[in-house]
């Protein structure tokens, strides 16, 4: 007998290792109990997801067609959404013209000029202005 045959014979001894008596009866009972618990625990949403998954896998080769169609639809929707989005939209409240007010302290009366007599009626402010001009 070759060493390989001897090894095979030794390893084959392991087929005599069995679980304790009654193991498989308990096993089935536990399996049934577990199935019931799993059904109760599973939400309807996850059951729906699983059904969709199974349905999708059952489609065979046509699942690629369906998958491609779904991907195309999603891309189209995303593109259309992106196209319709206004660019740099500013709220109307922010584009109202700003009210411009000259600060009170910087408002100066314009010097009045009597063109016929060539005389200026000067206020104290306009006098200072005139001095700067001439």
């Amino acid at each position: 007998m070759s060493p390989e045959d001897k090894v095979q014979k030794l390893i084959a001894l392991k087929r005599y290792e069995n679980p304790p008596p009654g193991f498989f009866d308990d096993f089935l009972e536990e399996f049934q109990q577990r199935q019931r618990e799993e059904l109760l625990r599973k939400s309807s949403l996850s059951l729906f997801g699983e059904r969709v998954g199974i349905w999708f896998k059952e489609l065979g080769m046509s699942k690629w067609l369906v998958g491609g169609g779904l991907a195309y639809g999603a891309l189209t929707l995303a593109f259309l959404g992106w196209q319709n989005k206004p660019v740099n939209e500013v709220p109307s409240s922010k584009i109202a013209p700003a009210a411009y007010q000259v600060p009170r302290h910087s408002a100066r009366p314009i010097p009045a000029v009597d063109f016929e007599n060539g005389k200026r009626y000067q206020t104290s402010d306009s006098r200072r202005e005139l001095r700067r001009e001439f």
């Binding site: 392991k14 087929r15 290792e17 679980p19 193991f23 498989f24 096993f27 089935l28 399996f31 049934q32 199935q35």
Partner: peptide, 22 residues
């Protein structure tokens, strides 16, 4: 038919147990 599946469990669990255990 859950009983039919139970029959499959009974039939195959010893052989499958052997594989998983070894």
């Amino acid at each position: 038919d859950t009983e039919a599946f139970d029959s499959l469990v009974i039939k195959f669990s010893p052989r499958l147990y052997g594989m998983v255990y070894h």
